[in-house]
Nucleic acid binder design. Structure first.
Lengths: 229, 229
DNA sequence: TAGATTGTTAATCGATTAACAATC
DNA sequence: TAGATTGTTAATCGATTAACAATC
């Protein structure tokens, strides 16, 4: 109904409604870099700056200024020409787009050394997450206190997710237990899974999976090492 | 789990010498998928198949057949039209290209829970790696036995790398110690670093770094979760 | 204003997909 | 051979880079 065509006159008028989620879909490559920008903004803020240029922020994030500005342009126009970006404001916008403007609850399945490392990692809170629960199948582990939480049995997972409102689950089990862990997480209602098990997980299409496979990372490094050494 | 096999004798038609670099440079996206193909080949072999089609292997690896064939075409012509790929031979070729045809030594710096998890992870050997040494700065940790290895002090790192021929180092320290750990690894001669610390590492251009940042992974999942829920 | 820096455009580059001729 | 499947080509798609007009 409302004319979408742009009259061939003076361009540059920004009619986009500010403050809302962008209409265009964000490129996946851009989304993947946003956490780095957020982290870089924290570092800049820690250094005491209230404003930052694309030049400086790009350097802190390890990208080019052109790429940074291009990425940010997908979120809207939050900078000021000739000045730069307001650190707090931009951080707030990126956090909102990422969905971590408010803290998100995360549950961890599998409390071996890796789960332990995750549970005692102190950096989650400042990145928008709170560890809401730990689950393990080993009777020797259930009931123990790890990182301020008591490890619960698998049967308690669904109640745990419902009680805490967790939307993301982490699979830190041995490989052979990973699919069961994922199934349980899906059944309990999480919509995102981060797995460290070297196994392809089958999940419904509405559940997003990201996999960290240490051996694969090492093999990619080996490729480069074998050409360079 | 079946052990990874070293390329057998002269099986294929146009064998190049193992370890030689291909004519054209491999696309980075292709290199990043090769570990998945190698892993999928192990699964196929475990199922007892000596031959595999691009259709089946692609499914096991979670890509399309077209993408798999395109990727493999960069390595050379190792399939047989109308037949498929010889599982052992193809695995050998991919392992050679990745530089894991022979076992590579890896050293881990930082033996907290994460380093512990890495040290006791049993899956390295079958993916082409051997854990050659553990280093930590904590006097309470030095000298303890973890995963069959005695934890050594930072001062022993260079001798360790030289003795074992390690080419890859893993940084599993707290964030504040990560740059020092990376510097020490670079000084000792490794050419690849896998870091789990949420810090940008400064390394010389000849050293390759791959970073796994758990909080960033969670934030990317949060982005999708916030659109879906 | 004069200088600085963004936001955007256009060009380049790289990766993916689809289709099919080659060939086992 | 006839059927099957690869390897390759061409088309499409997406991402990066460079440059500069807009504008603070």
């Amino acid at each position: 109904m409302t004319g979408r065509q742009v009259p061939p006159g003076p361009v540059g008028a920004d009619d986009r409604a500010p403050g809302t989620t962008p209409g265009q879909p964000l490129p996946a490559a851009t989304v993947a870099r946003l956490p780095g920008y957020l982290h870089a903004l924290d570092a800049v803020r820690g250094a005491g700056a209230a404003l930052v240029t694309s030049e400086r922020l790009a350097q802190a994030a390890g990208v080019t200024p052109a790429q940074l500005r291009k990425d940010l342009s997908f979120l809207g126009s939050y900078g000021r020409r000739g000045v730069g970006y307001d650190v707090d404001h931009l951080a707030g916008r990126i956090a909102a787009v990422l969905g971590v403007a408010t803290t998100r609850a995360v549950v961890v399945v599998g409390v071996g050394h890796l789960g332990h490392a995750l549970a005692t990692y102190g950096g989650f809170a400042e990145r928008g997450f709170t560890l809401a629960g730990l689950v393990d199948a080993d009777p020797a582990v259930i009931g123990t206190r790890v990182g301020g939480l008591v490890v619960e049995p698998p049967a308690a997972l669904m109640a745990l997710v419902m009680r805490t409102g967790a939307t993301i689950g982490v699979v830190a089990t041995p490989a052979h237990a990973a699919q069961d862990a994922a199934d349980a997480l899906v059944a309990s209602g999480v919509t995102g899974i981060l797995t460290f098990a070297p196994r392809a997980l089958r999940v419904p299409p509405n559940v997003e999976v990201r996999a960290v496979d240490v051996a694969s990372e090492l093999q990619i490094l080996a490729f480069h090492a074998s050409r360079h050494a």
